[in-house]
Design a protein around this nucleic acid. Structure first.
Length: 272
DNA sequence: AAAAGCCGCAACCGCCTTAGG
DNA sequence: TCCTAAGGCGGTTGCGGCTTT
């Protein structure tokens, strides 16, 4: 909590319209880089971090609002299956969407999926072995342990642990009903699974302890440097032909790739 | 109509990385 | 090379609105 203690008058919580206006104004003047500086000169009693977050997640003119399109949803699933919870990385490939938005979407998505699964009472064994789920749409959000699910989900711990079956050899539903997402994730996360994940997908994986990429065999560009270049031109640039192909393949439109500062939209966003 | 529960999202926290001196 | 400040990122929380009971 080093930032807060510097100034007791630092504002927190929801941003007011007035604050938004001020921030937009000063970002226009000084660019979207020097957040501490902007926070100071703007007179906003906010931290630079808070300003940056507000801009990135809400005020940036390139942002799309509203529900994810099916194409975007598929892209999120696809990319998450590759990279796990690298939200900012995923967000860079989905024009107009922020890491926060995608993160929130995924969370909701996972919750729904988990509920559906519980309702159906289906064992994850069949799910994990199902080819229809090869992109790991049910993959966990915690860490990149997208595999190892099959022998870790309720009723199938330690691969077919018979203690999960009742006397008749049937599944103990009560335990499944008790299964929260957090618990599912806890079950999923384990070091050996990281390796399994990488082995199976052969697409790169991370050391979740320190978030270091420890292997990457799929063709992906190196980590893009900043979220966007220092310009208001476009937040999401397609800098890779493959990525463009992917998006075209996913059926996405290319309109927003070229999105530039549109004054009308900008003001719609900022002054709505 | 009111209360409870659920959901979506904005924002914060704390750790890690990077850049500059 | 080391140190420090700022930026970036992923995880988490809390609130407001909507839906259900």
């Amino acid at each position: 909590m080093k930032m807060a203690q510097a100034d007791d008058h630092i504002r927190k919580g929801p941003w007011t319209e007035q604050e938004d206006l001020q921030l937009v104004c000063f970002v226009g003047l000084f660019g979207d880089r020097r957040w501490d500086f902007i926070a100071k000169v703007s007179g906003l009693n906010r931290t630079g971090k808070s300003c940056r977050l507000r801009w990135v997640n809400y005020l940036h003119p390139g942002l799309k609002r509203g529900r994810m399109t099916p194409q975007e949803e598929r892209l999120v699933l696809e990319l998450h299956s590759r990279w796990g919870n690298r939200w900012s990385r995923i967000a860079r490939k989905i024009p107009g969407r922020t890491d926060n938005e995608i993160k929130n979407y995924w969370r909701t998505h996972m919750r729904k999926k988990a509920q559906e699964m519980r309702k159906r009472g289906t064992a994850m064994t069949s799910i994990a072995s199902s080819s229809t789920i090869n992109t790991m749409t049910e993959s966990p959000t915690k860490s990149e342990n997208v595999l190892g699910i099959s022998n870790r989900f309720p009723g199938n711990k330690g691969s077919c642990n018979t203690t999960d079956l009742d006397a008749n050899g049937e599944r103990d539903i009560s335990e499944e009903e008790d299964y929260s997402m957090d618990r599912i994730w806890d079950e999923i996360a384990s070091p050996e699974d990281e390796v399994n994940s990488a082995q199976v997908f052969n697409e790169g994986y991370y050391n979740t302890k320190n978030n270091k990429e420890v292997g990457c065999s799929f063709s992906c560009p190196p980590m893009a440097s900043p979220l966007w270049e220092f310009s208001s031109e476009s937040l999401w640039k397609m800098d890779d032909e493959d990525e463009m192909k992917t998006l075209v393949h996913m059926g996405g439109t290319s309109d927003h790739f070229n999105s530039t500062m549109n004054t009308v939209d900008y003001h719609k966003l900022c002054f709505r």
